[in-house]
Design a protein around this nucleic acid. Sequence first.
DNA 1: GTGAAAGCGCTAACAT
DNA 2: ATGTTAGCGCTTTCAC
Lengths: 349, 349
Amino acid sequence: MVRVTITQVAARAGVSVASASRALNGLVASPETAAKVRDAARELGYVADATAQSLKRGRTLQLGFAVADIGNPVYVEMMAAVEQVVSASGYRLLLSSTGTSSSSVDVVRDLGRGYVDGLILSPLRVTDELLTALAAAPIPFVVLGRLPASADFDTVRADSPTAMRLVVDHLVAQGRRDIAFINGPTDTTPGVMRRDGFIAAVDRYDDLRTRHVDAADFTIAAGYDAALPLLDRPDRPTAVVAANDLIGVGVLRAAEDLGLQVPADLAVTGLDNTELAEVVRPGLTSVDLGAKERGRAAAEMLLARIADDTRPARTVTVPPALVVRGSTSASIPAALQRPEPIDEERAHG
Amino acid sequence: MVRVTITQVAARAGVSVASASRALNGLVASPETAAKVRDAARELGYVADATAQSLKRGRTLQLGFAVADIGNPVYVEMMAAVEQVVSASGYRLLLSSTGTSSSSVDVVRDLGRGYVDGLILSPLRVTDELLTALAAAPIPFVVLGRLPASADFDTVRADSPTAMRLVVDHLVAQGRRDIAFINGPTDTTPGVMRRDGFIAAVDRYDDLRTRHVDAADFTIAAGYDAALPLLDRPDRPTAVVAANDLIGVGVLRAAEDLGLQVPADLAVTGLDNTELAEVVRPGLTSVDLGAKERGRAAAEMLLARIADDTRPARTVTVPPALVVRGSTSASIPAALQRPEPIDEERAHG
DNA sequence: GTGAAAGCGCTAACAT
DNA sequence: ATGTTAGCGCTTTCAC
């Protein structure tokens, strides 16, 4: 198929390209001209070239979403929410996976190339290098995740301290006094936030025994490996707080392999409230950190920033919600542990 | 930050924009000029504008990935594989979610706007309208999924018939003779392919009893709802073949709620071999349809097509692999297959 | 090897 | 309301 330009449309309609452009964009044009141009465009199968429009208009109608780990269910949920808002606003979504922290900086640097009008960035680690790059970013952006107080950027974040308080209070209410925290890598922002949150949460009690283990990664396998030695000893804890659901499932598996009954012998909690928490048995008590809400909020914030780049930087914090399942509470009836009735978001795509 | 153009770089280097362009792109240039230009670019923080380059070069270095349901773990896996290949080849990945079949057509039509150099499309339903739009597509594309034989397009697909044979043979080998198939919606391509595959697979035996149920959707909830009435009766089947893992997990939940032991009372299989199959208890026997391989193959095929648009259309079929877990085989160690019973007595003791 | 100039396809002044 | 013209920022002939 041959590419048809506005020049050809104009020629066929017998008007100038300017008139053709105006007619096609619904600007001033006599009804007569408008009709001729519309017909010519239709007959020729004309569609405006996006690149040329972008160059001329100075905006691409593209937004970027840079995320450390596509594949992590939490990011997938965010991405889906972002995509929805973005496409509903007439923008296209550009995805980039930034495995390492340095490539995250690369993404920000690349912003100068002008292929997106804005960026949502969810960095695993916030380095000074990244902050510097962001401060110099030539286009609007929103950061998903915690930033140092000194960084005055648009941000959407979860509330780890509250999440950890919810979890710890719940476990204490269930009579647990010996609580281990299995964290992911502490050189990541979530790792630090969740650790600090846990410490602050347990510090409000003075009759708790606590211990800390770092899993090698925020994965099931790493959670399993970290839990096994912790649980395979006489003085094992009576509860484990996992830094995310994947680690939590690893803990459940380790308990299973050691013949421990959950929750009788051991209570386990996760974080993120992914579908995984709903699906495993016993169901994994978890805290919903509002991935979907964060994605939506970030996308809307970015659009608002694009519309008005003078507004002061904002930070939105999405409140967490505890979801109790069988891994901490034997009183949850089996019937409540089955899948949520429906997920309409997905059904309607 | 102000946008710096090649004109400014050229001015600073004391050369023409043409020379600057050549130097920056590693074309002919005296070492002297090259150095001056490079220095000027660095000092000014110059990065070439992607839109202008695209317009001039006639290619955007962007590829599209259009998928019906971001959020479905299978597509996420594909997407991650696609992203890897695409970004490694210097392209950016543009994501579009095409909930309905009609928006899938819209995506193809939009190809004429020229904001991508190629498209990977994974349509849930292949309509004539879509095929027509594809036939008229102005740029290269690859379809992920089965197409009618009449459509001579580049395609990557799974092998549902073989997958179903693997599953059925396995169940028969386990002594199951009464096998129910719980499908997703049959107005989708996967729905049709999996149904036909199942029928062909069981037709090779003449001592099987089979039945068919359609779940409302390829989801856990729909699988649960479809399984419940099927299993809650004296003449329930001894095995259920689910059309994907999500439905399979729904079946496991239904069996659990009805007090059926899996696999003793009922064998269950899924399809796709997502992480879910690994994580539930008992583990869900499933067939790996090679989502990652399909994503990678599709991306590579698209790049090859872009490089040479005269090559004949190809179809790559990724072979499936059976992964046996506790939901069909009692010989899988007990610790790995038994659901955790909710033991209320223990809660007191 | 280098510079002047054309032009990718489009929009937006600016005249008329 | 319409046409002419000047670019958006870049690459690439084409002369020299």
